[in-house]
Amino acid sequence: MSVVLGYLATILVTFFTYNIFTLGLNIQFGYAGILNFTVITFMAMGAYFYAVFVMPPANASNQVFYILGLHWPWPLASIAGVVASGALGYLIGLIALKRLRSDYLAIVTLATGTLLYGLSGDNNKLFDGWAGLFSVNQPFQSVANNHPNTFSWIFVVISGVVMLAVWWFANQLYSSPLGRSMRAIREDQDVVDAFGKNTFKVRMLAMVIGSTIVGIGGVLTIQYIGALSPAGWTTGETFVVWAALLVGGRGNNIGAMLGSLLVAVIFNEGTRYLPQVSSSPNLVPDLRNIIIGSLVILSIWFRPQGVLPEKKAKFYELPLKDKYAQTFAGAKVDQDLAVEV
C-alpha cells in the first residue's frame, strides 16, 4: 500500500513540476512567440543553483567538487535557484532577442543550451561534472529521511500550491494589456514596434518570466529527488515540454496543463515502469520517444492548435451609444462586407 501511495505522490509531483515547465514555456512561446529550444536548461540552472546554495562546501576528499557550497537554509537557496534561472534567461535574451527572431533565435537557444550542457558536464569543478550533484539537502530533511512517504505527500502539497500560484500568475498575465502586447508580438513584431511599443523589452519580460517559472520547477525537482546529473536534462527533455505544450494547446493555460498530463505523465512517466525486455534494454525508452514523437506529429497534423486551442478573448461591452446612427459609410460597408466572412 505504501509503495502505491509513494508512487502516486511521485506521479503527482511530476505532473505539477512538468505543468510548471509547460506554463513557463507557454508564456515564452504561446504568448510571445519566442522559440526557446532549451527549456530544460533553465530547469537545470534552478536545480543546480539551489543545490550549491543549500549544500555545505564541497568535500574534496570524496572527489566531489562544486562551486559555492554556502549551506544556506532551503527557502533562501530556493530563491537563489529561481533568480539564477531568471538571470540566465536575461543573458540569453540579451544575446538572442535584440536582433534575432523565430528560427535564428531558436538556434541560439539550442546552441546555448548545448554549450551549458557540455560545460557543466565536462568541467567537474562547477557542478561535479557528469556525476552530477547528489545528497542535496531537502526541505524537511528529517521527515524525508525517516518517513519518505510523508515527505512525498508534503511535497505534493508544496508543489501543488506552487503550481497553482504559477497558474494564477500566468492567467493574470494573459488577460492583461501586457499579455495582449505579447500575443500581438507573436502575431507580427514589426507592427507592434510601429505602434510604439518597445518590443525588445516586452519579449525580454516574457523570456525572463518564462525562465524564472521553469527555474521554480527545477528547484522543486531537485528538492524532491535530492539529486541531478546532466543525464537528467538532455535536449530530449526539452522536447517533452514542447510536446506537452503543442499537444495540449499553446496559448491556453488549461491546454498546457492537459498537455503535461498527457505527455509528461501518461506517456513519459507512465511508460517508465513498463517491464524491461532484458535482451533489448533500450526498447521501452525508445518506444516512449516514438510514441511522444508520433503524438506531436498527429496533433500538429490534425489539431494544429492543440487539444484545447487558445480561447477567443471576450470583453465586457456596453451597447453602442448610438446604435442606429451609424455613419453613412459604416452602415454601407457593414452590409456589403459582413457576409463575406
Binding site: 495582449r180 500575443r183 507573436r186 514589426d190 510604439g196
Partner: peptide
Amino acid sequence: SREFGGMTVLENLLVVRL
C-alpha cells in the same frame, strides 16, 4: 495588410493604445 491574425478585431485595436 498586416493584421494580428490570431487576435479578434477588437483586440487588434485594444493592443495599439499606448
